[in-house]
Design a protein around this nucleic acid. Structure first.
Lengths: 198, 198
DNA sequence: CGGAAGTTTCAGAAACGATTGAAAATCAGC
DNA sequence: GCTGATTTTCAATCGTTTCTGAAACTTCCG
């Protein structure tokens, strides 16, 4: 393998993707491993990753496991080779659907549950119990909580539409919206064509 | 102010919101300050925040500044009081529009720019220069980069539609989608009504 | 079985980002 | 332009998260 041009571009991509990961609350290394697998396009084994990214075996193993859990990387077995290889999901939309699905499940759903609990804590019953003077404050507090809750409920619905098998429709809608939005409002960047990705 | 029920619920909300912040790459304290202002509903000054959240003056000041920059908190002046007070945006949708706008500007746009640069590095010209054997690899590499780029372009468009003044339309669409998605695909949670939030 | 190849776990170390607190800057009113 | 109240800045410190490396484990094959 020649260590120029392509490798250099790959390394840059890995760095950029890793940086983005940390801005969104994903461990930098995990994002880097994913970036390497994605940009490389071919299955790599733990040792390849350790070497290329200069990370420890433990770290490589943990990151791989996490990516597997997220469903954006899959195991690949090669005949006559005991090592496990890993390959990144190569369809960008499928990848983002998986990410959205997981983040909703891990972060938004629990958040909603907790918000509901808090809301119950000051429900109509509780407000009355606390005394007549507190009424207005309780009411306003509950209203704010309810608005948030309603927002997250909508978010949940949109995300379900996007994530589901039928979500392809939303994806198409997004492309159209993206096109319109980009053309009508954006800074006039080249909007490209609208040809299908899948 | 009685230190029961309502305060307790507020504290819980602050904690939950702060936790969520850190999962999304926002400083926990900043999210907590915002949570406090949001759930409290009324303007608070630096000292109020320091006291309630038990944080230093410097931290409170920095966090406030950051929230102001994000456009989800505004200054409030009171006659006969030199102190500055701060109040959180109370419209949930406006708040999320602001957050989306800022995150796109700060993280997605620079990412796109860097991706473009990397793409240029291995553009058609560069590929030819590097030798005929590398052709297929370069091509595949560029294809992957292009797919990502196209995805982010669509995202940019959707976000513009959502964020713009005309974005109210998208918001309404989101509600409908949320309703359909939630009812048709979700685990049958109570879908609530579709009454307007604004 | 025994052992080689590969993978996972985890306690401690290192790196990183967040927080403090005191000093410097700013500002309103006199 | 001084004074005292308020806000901002920033180097030092602290706390959390991530990473390492070696040991434990699992799996496959002869």
């Amino acid at each position: 393998m020649q260590p120029t041009q392509l490798n250099e571009a790959q390394d840059r991509f890995v760095a950029v993707w890793g940086q983005m990961g940390s801005a969104w609350g994903i461990s930098r290394t995990m994002a880097e491993v994913h970036a390497l697998l994605y940009i490389t396009g071919e299955p790599l084994c733990t040792d390849d990753i350790m070497e290329r990214l200069r990370i420890s075996r433990g770290n490589a193993s943990m990151s791989m496991r996490a990516l597997l859990d997220w469903g954006i990387v899959e195991r690949v077995h090669r005949r006559g080779d005991r090592k496990e290889y890993f390959k990144a999901e190569s369809d960008v939309w499928a990848m983002f659907r998986a990410i959205v699905r997981e983040r909703m499940k891990r972060e938004v759903d629990p958040l909603r549950a907790q918000l509901y609990e808090i809301r119950d804590q000051t429900g109509e019953r509780a407000g009355e119990r606390a005394g007549r003077e507190q009424g207005p404050d309780f009411l306003a507090h509950n209203k704010r909580l309810d608005e948030l809750l309603r927002f997250f409920q909508t978010l949940e619905g949109v995300s379900n539409s996007f994530v589901s098998p039928a979500g392809r429709g939303l994806q198409a809608a997004a492309k159209i919206l993206g096109y319109i939005g980009g053309a009508a409002i954006g800074p006039g960047k080249d909007a490209g064509d609208t040809k299908e990705a899948g």
